[in-house]
Amino acid sequence: MDFHSMNDLLQLCEEKEMTMGRLMMETEEKKTGKSSDEIFTMMKERLFKMKEAVEKGITDPSPSPSGISGGDAHLMKEYKDKGNYMTGGLVTDAMKYAFATSETNARMGVIVATPTAGSAGILPGCIFALEDNTDISTDDLVMGLFTASAIGYVIANRAFISGAAGGCQAEVGSATAMASAAIVEMRGGTPEQAVHAAAMSLKSLLGLVCDPVAGLVEVPCIKRNVIGTAIAFASADMALAGIKSRIPCDEVIGAMYDIGSSMPRTLKETSLGGLAATPTGEDLKRKLMAKPCRNSAKNTG
């Protein structure tokens, strides 16, 4: 038993009358010969590692080693505590936790790649916001991670999940799709609704380029993670309302692949284009890297 497309995945869920999360678990059992308990425990350990990364990020207001990020999780927490936020407690918490994880990542702290480190803020952001704002159990959060992994598994094998291969759409896009599907299943939605949520998330991030300033996973990566949580919740709410993606999810993934394949090299994690090549981006690179910007010099002629 294995699946290579969202269509396969939905068909299997229907045949076996299972959630996507449960199906992913069973697939892992069949592939590895491990027991479901063992697999569940492994995933639970990752949930706890995510929690540690979040806690580290929230309590550490210091700047990252480069000095161009850090402290925003703390600011978001203070803002949330004042109670005057507009997007609601759930999204504000998700943003706070996404900041926390991505800032820990920028400090070379320990995180869990979901699916990548550059996009590691989105899924824990959404998961721990649900934990704080609903009565969901820890075991259901773990099942949410299985749901998310099923979506990421299909995208990673059909297209790409790295910024160097497919741009930021492949990282933040995939992570947001994974998170939104996980939210749908954790809230009791159907596998079909979860796949629509994933499609809507991925669609809204198509074309996003990977242009990290000075080659650091900080600007604009961290804030794109934060915004990703809001998109994940918006897509999940649409899907739970019964709204569907007009373009099937497999075709959205195909479009993501085509767009990523035709993106120029300067916009795929080389720090030679986009925000990395703005005057401020160039300036930061010169200051931080203490090496001549041979390529950017070539770029601007």
Partner: peptide, 17 residues
């Protein structure tokens, strides 16, 4: 594996780099 997607547990900042 699902742990190729949710994982690895790693020091940052980049899973590929």
């Amino acid at each position: 594996s699902c742990f190729d997607i949710i994982g690895p547990v790693m020091v940052g900042p980049s899973s590929s780099h």
